[in-house]
Each structure stands twice: as structure tokens, then as C-alpha cells.
Simulated scan of single mutants.
Amino acid sequence: MQQEALVNQLHQMLGIVLYMALPPLVAAVGIGLLVGILQAVTQIQDQSLPLAFKLLMVIAVLALAGPLLTVPLVREATAVFDNFPLMTR
């Protein structure tokens, strides 16, 4: 396999990883900010409250957006398996 083809393949895979990680990460940051503001306003100092809300939000985002997030992964995996004999020469 040529070096530029390997670099191109790794670049595509890292893009897919970033694409799949972005929605849950944004949801966790957003809900963490909202819960933090709520805790500051109400002076509730419970440490498990933000974690529980973040966990529920990430699970909800993955459940709702999971089929959309896996499309590029399946497409790239299919392309890699189809082109595997050419890549290993």
C-alpha cells in the first residue's frame, strides 16, 4: 500500500470518528452547562446530578441519532473490505 493512500485512509477514518463523537459530546457539554447554571442559581452542590443528566442525554442522543451516525462508518467499512485485496498488494 502506498504511503499517501494509507494517510488518506487514516484521514477518512479520523473524520468519521469526529463525526460520530460530535453530537454526544455537544449534548453533554450543553446539558452540563445548563445543570451547572441551575446548580449555581439554586445552590445545590450535588456531584452526581450533572453526571446523571449528561449520561441520560448522551444515551438519548445516541439512541435518536445512532442510525444517522453509523451510515458513514458502514460505508467506509464496506469500501475497505471491497478494496482490501488492492490495499494489501
Rank of each mutant, 00 (worst) to 15 (best):
M1P: 07
M1L: 14
Q2R: 06
E4A: 12
A5C: 05
A5I: 09
A5N: 11
L6M: 10
V7N: 03
N8A: 15
Q9N: 11
L10Q: 07
Q12H: 10
Q12P: 03
M13S: 14
V17M: 15
V17C: 14
L18H: 02
L18V: 06
L18M: 05
Y19E: 04
Y19T: 10
M20W: 05
L22T: 15
P23M: 00
P23G: 03
L25Y: 13
L25Q: 13
L25V: 14
A28G: 15
V29S: 07
V29L: 09
V29I: 10
G30W: 06
I31H: 09
G32F: 00
L34P: 15
V35I: 11
V35L: 07
V35Y: 10
V35H: 14
I37F: 11
I37C: 11
L38Y: 06
Q39A: 05
A40S: 14
V41H: 04
V41S: 05
T42K: 15
Q43H: 04
I44L: 08
I44C: 07
Q45M: 10
Q45Y: 11
Q47G: 15
Q47V: 10
S48M: 14
S48N: 13
L49R: 09
P50K: 02
P50E: 09
F53T: 12
L55G: 15
L55S: 15
L55N: 12
M57E: 07
I59H: 01
I59R: 01
I59Q: 00
A60R: 02
A60H: 05
V61W: 03
V61G: 02
V61R: 10
V61A: 02
L62V: 07
L62Y: 03
L62H: 02
L64D: 04
L64I: 15
L64E: 09
P67G: 04
L68V: 12
L68W: 10
L69V: 06
T70W: 03
T70Q: 02
V71Y: 01
V71E: 13
L73D: 08
L73F: 08
L73Q: 05
L73H: 02
L73E: 08
V74G: 05
V74W: 00
R75W: 01
R75F: 05
E76C: 00
E76T: 00
E76V: 00
E76R: 00
A77W: 10
A77E: 15
A77T: 15
A77P: 10
A79T: 04
V80F: 12
F81M: 09
D82R: 10
D82Y: 01
D82H: 09
N83M: 04
N83Y: 02
F84H: 02
F84N: 03
P85C: 07
L86D: 08
L86K: 10
M87C: 04
M87L: 12
T88E: 02
T88F: 14
R89K: 10
R89F: 13
